[in-house]
Each structure stands twice: as structure tokens, then as C-alpha cells.
Design a binder for these strands. Structure first.
Length: 117
DNA sequence: AGCCTTTGACCAGCG
DNA sequence: TCGCTGGTCAAAGGC
């Protein structure tokens, strides 16, 4: 197989609809995440589903790091041309303590595009 | 039928 | 060189 040249898409930060703080490759976001005391009568979106950015993610792994304080979930974009990966760090209580985005989307979000125009 | 989720094992890099 | 951690893939099951 002919190996690809190099740097397929490293500097391509221009079509990111994310209003969050996206600096460049290897973005690292960390926030407290204020959970509301809501009692889900069954199973809504408290089990895994990360914060939907408008993209679809498929979990491909989970490991506990930091000795035994946090668990890390690995998500990958389900798009055909999205080499983007997301790491979800959660505490034992289930609180998201950090979200690490890696790479950038080569497509628009699945959202109907309502903000921006 | 298709897609997603979950767990274990394996591999690579670093000290 | 060995051990440890982090990261990724694969198979099976469920919806």
C-alpha cells in the first residue's frame, strides 16, 4: 500500500461549529459540569451519552486511570471522514471532569444548523 | 439488519 | 531490560 504523504489534516480549523473553546489540534476542555438533581424514572441520558455536540460518537473503549479515581471513556466520530476522537473523563460519581477532543471534523455537525445564520 | 455498547487482551512508549 | 500506563481493536449481545 502506498503510504499517505504526511499530515493528512492537521491544520484545518475552520469548519468547527463548536462554540466551545477550540484552540487547535489536541483540545482539552475541563469543567465542573453542574448536574441537576433530576431523578430519571428509567434510563434517559445519564448512563453514557456524552454531551452531544451535534456529532455521533461510538464508544470503542473504557479504562480507569489516575490510580482509581476516574474512569476514561474513548469515543470516535462515526463519520466516514472524521478522524476525530473524544476522551471522556468521569469521576466515580459519574460527573464529567474533563473532555478531551482530538482532531477535527471534516464535515458539518448533524445539527440542523440553527445558530450562525 | 444495522448500529451501538461492553469487557478483555494486546501493543506501544516511557522511566 | 522490565514494569506500568494509556490507548486501541475485536467479539458478542442488545435494542
Amino acid at each position: 500500500m502506498t503510504q499517505v504523504p504526511t499530515t493528512i489534516s492537521t491544520t484545518a480549523q475552520h469548519l468547527i461549529p463548536q462554540p466551545a473553546s477550540v484552540s487547535a489540534s489536541g483540545v482539552t476542555e475541563s469543567f465542573g459540569f453542574s448536574h441537576s438533581d433530576k431523578k430519571l424514572h428509567s434510563s434517559a441520558v445519564i448512563v453514557d451519552k456524552p454531551n452531544d455536540d451535534g456529532f455521533n460518537w461510538r464508544k470503542y473503549g473504557q479504562k480507569h486511570v489516575k490510580g482509581s479515581d476516574f474512569s476514561r471513556s474513548y469515543y470516535k466520530c462515526t463519520h466516514p471522514n472524521c478522524p476525530v476522537k473524544k476522551k471522556l473523563e468521569r469521576s466515580l460519581e459519574g460527573h464529567v471532569t474533563a473532555i478531551i477532543y482530538k482532531g477535527e471534523h471534516n464535515h458539518q455537525s448533524t445539527l440542523p444548523l440553527l445558530f450562525g445564520n
